[in-house]
Protein backbone atom coordinates (compact mmCIF):
# COMPACT_ATOMS: atom_id res chain seq x y z
CA UNK A 1 0.00 0.00 0.00
CA UNK A 2 1.01 3.60 -0.41
CA UNK A 3 1.93 5.70 2.60
CA UNK A 4 2.35 9.46 2.87
CA UNK A 5 5.17 10.02 5.37
CA UNK A 6 7.03 13.13 6.50
CA UNK A 7 10.79 12.80 6.96
CA UNK A 8 10.48 12.64 10.76
CA UNK A 9 7.98 9.79 10.42
CA UNK A 10 10.48 7.74 8.37
CA UNK A 11 12.31 7.05 11.64
CA UNK A 12 9.43 4.73 12.60
CA UNK A 13 9.81 2.84 9.30
CA UNK A 14 13.57 2.17 9.11
CA UNK A 15 13.35 -0.74 6.65
CA UNK A 16 11.09 1.19 4.29
CA UNK A 17 13.21 4.36 4.52
CA UNK A 18 16.56 2.57 4.02
CA UNK A 19 15.30 0.65 0.99
CA UNK A 20 13.94 3.88 -0.54
CA UNK A 21 17.21 5.80 -0.16
CA UNK A 22 19.19 2.79 -1.51
CA UNK A 23 16.83 2.42 -4.48
CA UNK A 24 17.26 6.13 -5.17
CA UNK A 25 21.05 5.61 -5.21
CA UNK A 26 20.59 2.73 -7.65
CA UNK A 27 18.32 4.75 -9.93
CA UNK A 28 19.79 8.25 -9.87
CA UNK A 29 23.49 7.57 -9.18
CA UNK A 30 24.21 4.13 -10.68
CA UNK A 31 21.80 3.94 -13.61
CA UNK A 32 20.98 7.52 -14.66
CA UNK A 33 24.45 8.78 -13.57
CA UNK A 34 23.02 12.03 -12.21
CA UNK A 35 25.38 14.19 -10.19
CA UNK A 36 23.99 13.09 -6.80
CA UNK A 37 25.83 12.02 -3.68
CA UNK A 38 25.58 8.63 -2.00
CA UNK A 39 26.58 8.33 1.66
CA UNK A 40 28.38 5.50 3.49
CA UNK A 41 25.07 3.68 4.03
CA UNK A 42 24.50 3.65 0.29
CA UNK A 43 21.72 6.23 0.66
CA UNK A 44 21.12 8.88 -2.01
CA UNK A 45 20.07 11.95 -0.03
CA UNK A 46 20.33 15.66 -0.66
CA UNK A 47 19.68 18.92 1.19
CA UNK A 48 15.96 18.74 0.38
CA UNK A 49 15.55 15.50 2.33
CA UNK A 50 15.16 17.65 5.44
CA UNK A 51 12.67 17.21 8.28
CA UNK A 52 9.91 19.05 6.42
CA UNK A 53 9.89 16.85 3.30
CA UNK A 54 6.87 14.67 2.54
CA UNK A 55 7.30 11.30 0.81
CA UNK A 56 4.77 9.28 -1.14
CA UNK A 57 5.96 5.67 -0.82
CA UNK A 58 4.59 2.38 -2.12
CA UNK A 59 5.45 -0.26 0.49
CA UNK A 60 5.67 -3.81 -0.85
CA UNK A 61 4.64 -6.99 0.96
CA UNK A 62 8.14 -7.37 2.40
CA UNK A 63 7.86 -3.93 4.00
CA UNK A 64 10.31 -2.47 1.52
CA UNK A 65 10.23 0.38 -0.96
CA UNK A 66 8.60 -0.31 -4.35
CA UNK A 67 8.27 3.25 -5.64
CA UNK A 68 8.21 6.80 -4.32
CA UNK A 69 8.51 10.51 -4.79
CA UNK A 70 9.30 13.53 -2.63
CA UNK A 71 6.92 16.46 -2.21
CA UNK A 72 7.45 19.97 -0.87
CA UNK A 73 5.68 23.33 -0.94
CA UNK A 74 6.98 25.89 -3.41
CA UNK A 75 6.50 28.73 -0.93
CA UNK A 76 9.75 27.46 0.56
CA UNK A 77 13.09 26.61 -1.07
CA UNK A 78 12.80 23.80 -3.58
CA UNK A 79 15.21 22.00 -5.86
CA UNK A 80 13.69 23.50 -8.99
CA UNK A 81 13.61 27.05 -7.63
CA UNK A 82 17.22 26.81 -6.50
CA UNK A 83 18.80 24.96 -9.42
CA UNK A 84 16.57 24.53 -12.47
CA UNK A 85 15.00 27.89 -13.27
CA UNK A 86 16.09 27.49 -16.90
CA UNK A 87 13.73 24.50 -17.06
CA UNK A 88 10.72 26.58 -15.97
CA UNK A 89 10.86 29.31 -18.63
CA UNK A 90 12.82 31.53 -16.18
CA UNK A 91 9.74 31.74 -13.96
CA UNK A 92 10.36 31.29 -10.24
CA UNK A 93 7.57 28.78 -9.56
CA UNK A 94 6.21 29.71 -6.13
CA UNK A 95 2.64 29.61 -4.81
CA UNK A 96 0.75 27.99 -1.92
CA UNK A 97 -1.28 26.26 -4.66
CA UNK A 98 1.72 24.54 -6.28
CA UNK A 99 3.84 21.79 -4.76
CA UNK A 100 7.07 20.37 -6.14
CA UNK A 101 7.58 16.67 -6.77
CA UNK A 102 11.08 15.27 -7.22
CA UNK A 103 13.05 12.01 -7.01
CA UNK A 104 10.39 9.88 -8.68
CA UNK A 105 11.85 6.41 -8.19
CA UNK A 106 10.87 2.82 -8.96
CA UNK A 107 12.65 -0.01 -7.15
CA UNK A 108 14.73 -2.31 -9.39
CA UNK A 109 13.08 -5.19 -7.49
CA UNK A 110 9.77 -4.10 -9.00
CA UNK A 111 10.94 -3.17 -12.49
CA UNK A 112 8.63 -5.75 -14.12
CA UNK A 113 5.66 -4.17 -12.35
CA UNK A 114 6.98 -0.66 -12.95
CA UNK A 115 3.97 0.76 -14.76
CA UNK A 116 1.55 -0.24 -12.01
CA UNK A 117 3.87 0.99 -9.24
CA UNK A 118 4.54 4.29 -11.05
CA UNK A 119 0.80 4.66 -11.63
CA UNK A 120 0.10 4.12 -7.94
CA UNK A 121 2.64 6.71 -6.85
CA UNK A 122 1.25 9.18 -9.39
CA UNK A 123 -2.34 8.44 -8.34
CA UNK A 124 -1.38 9.11 -4.72
CA UNK A 125 0.48 12.31 -5.63
CA UNK A 126 -2.49 13.45 -7.68
CA UNK A 127 -4.71 12.87 -4.65
CA UNK A 128 -2.70 15.45 -2.68
CA UNK A 129 -3.53 18.03 -5.34
CA UNK A 130 -7.22 17.19 -5.45
CA UNK A 131 -7.73 17.01 -1.69
CA UNK A 132 -5.78 20.15 -0.83
CA UNK A 133 -7.14 22.34 -3.62
CA UNK A 134 -3.83 22.77 -5.47
CA UNK A 135 -3.68 23.92 -9.10
CA UNK A 136 -0.44 22.25 -10.20
CA UNK A 137 2.63 20.32 -9.30
CA UNK A 138 6.03 21.15 -10.77
CA UNK A 139 8.96 18.83 -11.33
CA UNK A 140 12.10 17.91 -13.25
CA UNK A 141 12.07 14.69 -15.21
CA UNK A 142 14.11 12.73 -17.74
CA UNK A 143 13.26 11.24 -21.10
CA UNK A 144 12.54 7.80 -19.65
CA UNK A 145 9.81 9.31 -17.46
CA UNK A 146 8.17 11.01 -20.45
CA UNK A 147 7.11 7.59 -21.75
CA UNK A 148 5.79 6.55 -18.34
CA UNK A 149 3.72 9.73 -17.94
CA UNK A 150 2.31 9.23 -21.41
CA UNK A 151 1.48 5.57 -20.81
CA UNK A 152 -0.36 6.53 -17.62
CA UNK A 153 -2.20 9.44 -19.22
CA UNK A 154 -0.76 12.24 -17.07
CA UNK A 155 1.72 14.09 -19.27
CA UNK A 156 3.02 17.43 -18.01
CA UNK A 157 3.15 20.76 -19.84
CA UNK A 158 6.87 21.02 -20.66
CA UNK A 159 8.26 24.46 -19.77
CA UNK A 160 11.91 23.98 -20.69
CA UNK A 161 14.67 21.45 -21.35
CA UNK A 162 18.41 21.02 -20.90
CA UNK A 163 20.82 18.58 -22.59
CA UNK A 164 20.31 16.17 -25.44
CA UNK A 165 19.54 12.49 -25.96
CA UNK A 166 19.76 10.37 -22.84
CA UNK A 167 21.01 13.34 -20.82
CA UNK A 168 18.03 15.51 -21.66
CA UNK A 169 16.01 16.71 -18.65
CA UNK A 170 12.83 18.79 -18.66
CA UNK A 171 10.80 20.93 -16.29
CA UNK A 172 7.06 20.40 -16.31
CA UNK A 173 3.72 21.25 -14.77
CA UNK A 174 1.02 18.69 -13.97
CA UNK A 175 -2.66 19.55 -13.58
CA UNK A 176 -5.21 17.92 -11.27
CA UNK A 177 -8.77 16.86 -12.06
CA UNK A 178 -11.20 14.01 -11.34
CA UNK A 179 -10.90 12.96 -15.00
CA UNK A 180 -7.12 12.67 -14.72
CA UNK A 181 -7.51 10.67 -11.53
CA UNK A 182 -9.76 8.13 -13.28
CA UNK A 183 -7.43 7.94 -16.24
CA UNK A 184 -4.29 7.24 -14.20
CA UNK A 185 -6.07 4.52 -12.21
CA UNK A 186 -7.43 2.88 -15.36
CA UNK A 187 -4.09 2.97 -17.19
CA UNK A 188 -2.24 1.60 -14.16
CA UNK A 189 -4.78 -1.16 -13.63
CA UNK A 190 -5.57 0.08 -10.13
CA UNK A 191 -8.90 0.59 -8.38
CA UNK A 192 -9.45 4.36 -8.22
CA UNK A 193 -10.89 4.01 -4.70
CA UNK A 194 -7.36 3.16 -3.49
CA UNK A 195 -6.46 6.85 -3.73
CA UNK A 196 -8.97 7.70 -1.01
CA UNK A 197 -8.00 4.72 1.11
CA UNK A 198 -4.28 5.55 1.01
CA UNK A 199 -4.89 9.23 1.69
CA UNK A 200 -7.24 8.69 4.61
CA UNK A 201 -4.99 6.04 6.19
CA UNK A 202 -2.06 8.45 6.28
CA UNK A 203 -3.73 11.77 6.97
CA UNK A 204 -6.17 10.59 9.63
CA UNK A 205 -4.86 9.82 13.11
CA UNK A 206 -6.14 6.48 14.39
CA UNK A 207 -9.03 6.74 16.85
CA UNK A 208 -7.88 6.33 20.50
CA UNK A 209 -9.41 2.86 20.89
CA UNK A 210 -7.69 1.62 17.71
CA UNK A 211 -4.39 2.95 18.92
CA UNK A 212 -4.79 1.11 22.23
CA UNK A 213 -5.33 -2.12 20.28
CA UNK A 214 -2.31 -1.52 18.07
CA UNK A 215 -0.04 -0.83 21.05
Amino acid sequence: MIKFLYADQLANQPKLAASMFRDRADQFHDRLKWDVSVDKNGFERDQYDHAGALYVIWEDNAGEHAGSMRVMPTTERTMIRDHFEDLTDSVDITSPLIWETTRFCISPRHAKDGKRIAGGVMLAGHELGLRFGLIASVGVFDLRMTRIYKALGWSPDVLGARGTGRDRICGGLWAFSPEIRSRIARNAGLDEALADIWFDASFTAPAPEQKALAA
Binding site: T94, S95, I135, A136, D157
Partner: peptide
Protein backbone atom coordinates in the same frame (compact mmCIF):
# COMPACT_ATOMS: atom_id res chain seq x y z
CA UNK B 1 -4.13 27.34 -20.70
CA UNK B 2 -2.96 25.41 -17.66
CA UNK B 3 0.54 26.88 -17.86
CA UNK B 4 -0.99 30.33 -18.33
CA UNK B 5 -3.05 29.81 -15.20
CA UNK B 6 0.08 28.78 -13.27
CA UNK B 7 2.03 31.87 -14.42
CA UNK B 8 -0.83 34.13 -13.36
CA UNK B 9 -0.94 32.37 -10.01
CA UNK B 10 2.82 32.61 -9.34
CA UNK B 11 2.63 36.31 -10.28
CA UNK B 12 -0.34 36.75 -7.94
CA UNK B 13 1.60 35.17 -5.09
CA UNK B 14 4.73 37.28 -5.69
Amino acid sequence: EHTFRVYVDTARHK
